[in-house]
C-alpha cells in the first residue's frame, strides 16, 4: 500500500500554486454478496487522493476492481466500508459535478448528436439556454463533430460516437470526469487518435480525469499518476508518478522515460504472478 495523500509536483505548464485535492477514497472497500450468500471482495482498503486538474489512471488485471472504484465515485455503487469524499465547495447535481464516459458510447439512438450532448441537461429537467447552446457548439467543434450535430448516432462511426459521448460528458462543465476504458472498444488507430485528442482537451479544459484503462501505454501517455491495482481482492498496489513534461504528443512514446515507466508498471502488474509467495 502506498501513500494515499502524496503531493504531486506539477510539470511547469499552467498556473498551479498548490495541488488541491478534489476527491478522496479513504480505506474504501466494496464487498458484493453473491446469490449463494458468499461474500466477494471487489475492492479492499483503497486509499487514493486525486488533485484538481490531474489525470490519474487506474490500471490492473481484470477483476481488480478498477471499474468498481470508478462506479463508487460516479455514485453507482455504494461503499461497504471506508469513505469517499468528493469536494470542492457545494455539490452540484448530475453531470455538473461528476460526469462519466463509458466504454460504449451509450448515445441514445432516438436523439440526434446535439440532443444527446444535451441529455445531462434534460436529465436535470432543465432547458438548454443560450449559454448551453454556445457551449454545445464549442464542444462539437472541439471533438470535430460540428458537421454531424443533427445526425442520428447510428450514422456515426464508433470513434465519432465516442467523441460525441465525451462532448456530452463536458456539457455541464463538471469538476470531475470519470472514464471507464473509454477507448477500449475502438480500433487501434482511432484509439491513438482519441488519446491525443484527450490530451488536447485536458490542456484546454484542465478537467480532473480518472481513467480506467487496460492499456499501460495509454495510462503512461495520459496520466500524471498511475494507480496500479492488484486483483482478488482489489487493492491499490502502487502509485506511480509519471514525470513526463506536458504538452505530450505521439513522440512521447519513444522517450526512454516513457518506456521506463511502462516497464515499471508492467512489473508491478505481472510481478506477483511469478512470485506468488512474495505477495502472499
Amino acid at each position: 500500500m502506498n501513500t494515499h495523500n502524496s503531493t504531486t509536483p506539477r510539470p511547469p505548464t499552467g498556473p498551479h500554486p498548490r495541488p488541491q485535492p478534489i476527491f478522496e477514497l479513504a480505506h474504501a472497500g466494496v464487498t458484493f454478496t453473491s446469490r449463494k450468500g458468499k461474500d466477494v471482495i471487489a475492492v479492499e482498503d483503497m486509499n487514493l487522493t486525486v488533485n484538481s486538474e490531474e489525470i490519474v489512471s487506474l490500471v490492473g488485471p481484470s477483476g481488480c476492481g478498477k471499474s468498481t472504484v470508478l462506479r463508487v465515485l460516479a455514485g453507482l455503487q455504494p461503499l461497504t466500508s471506508g469513505d469517499v469524499w468528493i469536494g470542492g465547495g457545494t455539490r452540484k447535481p448530475g453531470f455538473a459535478e461528476v460526469a462519466i464516459v463509458f466504454q460504449k458510447p451509450t448515445l441514445l439512438p432516438w436523439l440526434t448528436v446535439r440532443q444527446n450532448i444535451f441529455y445531462p441537461v434534460r436529465a436535470l429537467r432543465r432547458r438548454p439556454d443560450r449559454t448551453l447552446n454556445e457551449r454545445c457548439d464549442e464542444l462539437l467543434d472541439i471533438v470535430g463533430l460540428s458537421e454531424m450535430a443533427d445526425r442520428m448516432p447510428h450514422e456515426l462511426s464508433g470513434g465519432m460516437q465516442q467523441r460525441a459521448s465525451i462532448a456530452r460528458s463536458l456539457i455541464l462543465d463538471p469538476k470531475i470526469l470519470l472514464m471507464d476504458e473509454p477507448f477500449g472498444a475502438l480500433d487501434a488507430l482511432t484509439r491513438e487518435d482519441l488519446q491525443l485528442d484527450l490530451l488536447d482537451l485536458h490542456a484546454r479544459t484542465r478537467k480532473t480525469i480518472l481513467l480506467v484503462t487496460h492499456s499501460i501505454n495509454e495510462a503512461v501517455l495520459l496520466s500524471d499518476r498511475v494507480a496500479v491495482m492488484s486483483a482478488r481482492p482489489g487493492r491499490l498496489q502502487n502509485l506511480i508518478e509519471i514525470d513526463i513534461p506536458r504538452p505530450r504528443g505521439p513522440d512521447c512514446i519513444a522517450d526512454p522515460d516513457f518506456q521506463k515507466y511502462a516497464a515499471h508498471i508492467r512489473t508491478d502488474i505481472f510481478g506477483p504472478r511469478y512470485r506468488k509467495e512474495a505477495h502472499a
Binding site: A74, G94, F95, I100, F102, T106, Y119, P120, A123, L124
Partner: peptide, 8 residues
C-alpha cells in the same frame, strides 16, 4: 447508469 449519473 448514464441517466443515474446524470442525476435523473
Amino acid at each position: 447508469d448514464l441517466s443515474k449519473v446524470a442525476g435523473a
